[in-house]
């Protein structure tokens, strides 16, 4: 790897950045970002997300990390065929977005208009009733106002009707779009189940290797399988890192190792040592 951080330039399988004012997560972000040329190295594999940073504060999901480590070494499971098939099916699902809110709002607004104009027609028609027979000029004006109000009401009703029909059409489209969403959800559930099954299978099959990795580290007294392990989480993380092929360098805190070369040997990977 090639590192240019905080005015310091380093190069090699192991780099000691303890004198550089930089956090482990900053270095890890630079390692993972191919466009960040402060750290140039090989591309990380998926397991790097789990064990790419190691210090006493990490929280590593051991089974998932162990499965990812197995994957980084090319391990396969009986679920992989189905996994690929479901992933491919999922990629084919396209869900349309149907805006119902606009149509609903239009229905509510036009309904209010209709209600308001109905009340107005009732009011005006009461006035017309009262002046009928009096025969003055006000009566004619009231009649005219009533005709106006009725025209406006008719127009508002037409608009409300159109809004309702538009909403009904949008609802039908939304129903079809939900069929696709439903299908996507069931595929996603199936994919999650398959991934979980695959993780379990890998973690079980790689349990012994995990135990051997623990034994090879200078931390644990009693090496066990991943489920029985009761030591600190970061020790399990280090064991997973040792048996993984992380691709990119691991960012290791000085609380774990005080020497970059020794860290690299223990974890069997390129290492950037940072001060924590």
């Amino acid at each position: 790897m090639k590192v240019a951080l905080g005015g310091v330039q380093r190069r090699g399988r192991t780099v000691d950045l303890r004198s550089v004012d930089v956090t482990a997560s900053e270095v890890a972000a630079a390692v993972r970002d191919p466009d960040d040329d402060r750290v140039c190295s090989q591309r990380p594999t998926a397991v790097h997300e789990h064990v790419g940073v190691l210090d006493r504060e990490v929280s590593v999901p051991v089974r998932a990390a162990l499965a990812a480590a197995a994957r980084s070494r090319g391990a396969r499971t009986e679920y992989d065929g189905d996994l690929r098939a479901v992933e491919a099916e999922l990629a084919e699902v396209s869900v349309a977005s149907v805006d119902l809110a606009g149509a609903r709002e239009r229905v509510a607004e036009t309904a209010e208009d209709v209600e308001r104009l109905r009340e107005r027609v009732a009011r005006v028609s009461g006035r017309v009733e009262a002046r009928r027979g009096v025969g003055d000029a006000d009566a004619a004006a009231a009649e005219e106002a009533l005709a106006d109000a009725n025209r406006e009401l008719a127009a508002a009703e037409t608009e409300h009707h159109a809004a309702q029909e538009a909403l009904e059409r949008a609802r039908r489209r939304a129903r079809e779009a939900r069929d696709a969403r439903e299908r996507r959800l069931s595929l996603e559930d199936r994919l999650a189940n398959l991934r979980r099954d695959a993780r379990r299978a890998l973690a079980e099959r790689w349990g012994e290797r995990f135990q051997r990795a623990l034994a090879a580290l200078p931390f644990a007294d009693e090496p066990t399988g991943p489920d029985a392990f009761e030591g600190p989480n970061w020790v399990a993380g280090a064991a997973v890192a040792r048996l993984a092929a992380p691709g990119a360098p691991l960012v290791v805190g000085s609380s774990l190792f005080s020497n970059a070369t020794r860290a690299s040997a223990a974890l069997d990977a390129p290492v950037a040592l940072v001060e924590v």
Binding site: R178, R181, R184, L185, D189
Partner: peptide, 8 residues
């Protein structure tokens, strides 16, 4: 709900 996140 029609997605895992929404269901959660």
């Amino acid at each position: 709900t029609y997605a895992r996140a929404a269901r959660q």
